[in-house]
Write a protein that binds this DNA or RNA. Structure first.
Length: 634
RNA sequence: GCCCAUGUAGCUCAGUCGGUAGAGCACCUCCUUGGUAAGGAGGAGGUCACCGGUUCAAUCCCGGUCGUGGGCUCCA
């Protein structure tokens, strides 16, 4: 028998019947990839195989580690609650969860007790024993155990299936697992919540417990530390602390009131947005907040999105809807007159505020609201122009996102599911052609992407760009969508060079997504420390005593006259107190003036990031600021 | 929308086993004019989310509504 390692360099020969655990090369190994398939260490090697051992450091090994911890959790729950029904317990991006059917939800105290039981199970160092059996036998087994969810899963599986045992605990599971429970060293149950069986909201609600585990205590501590850091950056608290915006019960859930400082940040972002679009040949429009119900019927939005549209407003014999999208208005602008191929591509952009009745449970700070401003645009072009338009949109997105310090993305190409063609609009040719245009643009711009089958909207395929923030968290920003629906519903045509009418292609796109969400993401990304060009207050002038107030006021004036967003704190407080407050407000630069500054004609400058940075004269300081703003330094 | 938790001063939170409440910070006044993250004293501030029920009496117990948080589902 021959066993090769991954590099196929040092092949080794073993006796027949050798198991992986007989040949592991170090103690950290918890499983292995054998010919590309994950296996338990108890796996008996075939005649010839390529083997790569896995440790918890490895991406896949980590999944095995977490998933095994989920089993221990399930066992602990079964020991404490014998009637609990097992559902599913996978490893996820950060840890694992397990869903249980129980009469009563778990309380935080119960989680603590479950953790204690888990520690016991780990202490008992029980092996994970794998066994294969036919589906019928497995169904019989789980019927005896009363595990109805497992039976439902089994009914969709083919023989043979595998089960794993720890002592008297049996779970249906594909595996693999660590060799024994003692391999799990440090873990924590992090949360519990309700979750629908199989993610289907028409099915019963199960109780889910989340957790995470590591081999070393430091790793667990690092993880908990990161959670704390994320909490510190929570845009909801920072937004309130920094006076950016407010929300209020009596105004309504998911409705944002922007405060002066927040408006400043928005204005800077929106001006930047305007300039970048102007440069690239976009035209700007502004559409009303309501329109007649018939318009939404015609566009199809009323049929497809009725759940999220606010109820009809009636006055006399007319009825109106508050807009959930900007599209129909853009379409009407296109249709305002006969369009010639000479006018195309026509790029209509709008910062359009839309209202959607989002389910109450999904609202979340600025990231999920009921009234928000899309940085929307529709591109009307000839089919032959679509590819290049897509390239331009991707470049625009990259340029804008990188200005905000987002250089890492994950890109998804969402296409239809060829097996469910009746769920989608347009014919096969449209979909294939659209996909090839999107792929072309992705290749041309050198973006690597993931193809997501069945994730497209019913009206067309799309590219989504998810940005990664300073903590490597993912946020949806750019979306670029083909729309086969609108051209058809509204019969959009252009007069071709040949004197005949042709169908126009509509590309619907948003770069930032929504201004509200984007500001929320920025706050978390920067932890509230906006770079100078975005900071609502760029400089704060602090006179040391009241005698200096007038002189400080002149400095404030001069900074303001140079276009710097500046405030002065001339309250009767000590300097260190004023510095403390300005620091908490995360103002990028503090200018300190006292008698020394009056005498020398310089100012003392303290930077948010670097502390005391010396005593330049005012005009040098202003040029420094202007340069930093101009560069949009991050 | 569903599951669980939760709602006390502008903010962060105590508290009342049913007899209408308290701290720190912030705010206001006075003293202090101080050189790189909290000077001192005093004061004001709450229909205890809202609506209903039980009770002699409800901020507390019960029901409902609304809001918020963590998830599920959905999504910009």
């Amino acid at each position: 028998m021959v066993v090769f390692n991954k590099a196929m360099k040092n092949s080794k020969t073993y006796k027949k019947g050798t198991r992986l655990e007989d040949v592991v090369d170090n103690d950290g190994v918890i499983g292995a990839m054998v010919d590309g398939e994950p296996r338990d260490l108890s796996y008996t090697l075939p005649e010839k195989a390529e083997v790569r051992f896995l440790t918890p450091e490895d991406e896949y090994g980590r999944q095995i580690y977490w998933h095994s911890t989920a089993h221990i959790l399930a066992y602990a729950v079964k020991r404490r609650y014998p009637n609990a029904k097992l559902a599913m317990g996978p490893a996820i991006k950060d840890g694992f969860y397990y869903d249980f059917g129980v009469d009563r939800p778990f309380t935080p105290e119960e989680l603590t007790r479950i953790e204690e039981e888990m520690k016991r199970i780990i202490g008992e160092d029980l092996p994970f024993d794998r066994e294969e059996l036919g589906v019928d036998d497995a169904i019989k087994l789980f019927k005896e155990l009363g595990e109805n969810y497992k039976i439902e899963l089994l009914e969709e599986l083919e023989s043979p299936v595998s089960i794993y045992r720890n002592n008297d605990f049996i779970d249906l599971c594909k595996g693999p697992h660590v060799p024994s429970t003692g391999r799990i060293k440090f873990f924590k149950l992090t949360a519990s919540s309700g979750a629908y069986w199989r993610g289907d909201e028409s099915r019963e609600m199960l109780q889910r417990i989340y957790g995470i585990s590591f081999e070393r205590q430091e790793e667990l501590q690092d993880y908990l530390e990161r959670m704390k850091e994320a909490k510190k950056r929570d845009h909801r608290t920072l937004g309130a602390d920094l006076d950016l915006w407010m929300m209020n019960d009596e105004i309504g859930a998911g409705l944002v009131v922007w405060l002066s400082r927040g408006v400043t940040v928005r204005k800077v972002i929106e001006d930047f947005w305007w300039d970048e679009h102007k440069k690239r040949g976009y035209d700007f429009i502004l559409s009303p907040h309501i329109a007649k119900t018939d318009l939404w019927k015609q566009s199809g939005h009323l049929d497809y999105y009725s759940d999220l549209i606010y109820p009809v407003m009636k006055k006399g014999n007319q009825s109106y809807l508050i807009k959930p999208m900007n599209c129909p208005f853009h379409i009407k602008v296109y249709k305002r007159k006969r369009r010639s191929y000479r006018e195309l591509p026509l790029r209509l952009a709008e910062l359009g505020t839309v209202y959607r009745y989002e389910k109450s449970g999904v609202l979340h700070g600025l990231l999920r609201v009921r009234g928000f401003t899309q940085d929307d645009a529709h591109i009307f072009c000839m089919p032959s122009q679509a590819r290049d338009e897509l390239v331009d949109i991707i470049n625009l997105a990259r340029d804008m996102l990188s200005a905000f310090g987002f250089g890492d993305y994950r890109v998804e190409l969402s296409v239809w599911n060829v097996n469910e063609k009746d769920k989608y609009m347009g014919d096969e040719k449209d979909w294939e052609n659209a996909e090839s245009c999107l792929v072309y643009a992705l290749k041309k711009t050198g973006l690597s992407y993931e193809r997501m089958e069945g994730e497209a909207a019913f009206y067309g395929p799309k590219i989504d760009i998810k940005i990664l923030d300073a903590l490597k968290r993912e946020w949806q920003a750019t979306t670029i969508q083909f729309d086969f629906n609108l051209p058809q519903k509204f019969n959009l045509k252009f007069m071709g060079e040949d004197g005949r009418q042709h169908g126009v292609v509509v590309i619907h796109r948003a770069i930032l997504g929504s201004v509200e969400r984007f500001v929320g993401v920025l706050v978390e990304h920067y932890g509230g420390k906006f770079p100078l060009w975005l900071a609502p207050v760029q400089v704060k002038v602090l006179p040391i005593t009241s005698e200096i107030n007038e002189f400080a006021g002149d400095i404030r004036e001069e900074l303001a006259a140079s276009g710097i967003r500046v405030e002065m704190d001339d309250r009767n407080e000590k300097l260190s107190f004023k510095i403390r407050e300005a620091t908490i407000e995360k103002v990028p630069y503090i200018v300190i003036v006292g008698q020394k500054e009056i005498d020398s004609g310089c100012i003392s400058v303290r930077s948010r990031d670097k502390g005391d940075i010396g005593r330049p004269n005012l005009s040098d300081f202003i040029s420094l600021l202007k340069e930093e703003i101009e560069k949009r330094s991050n």
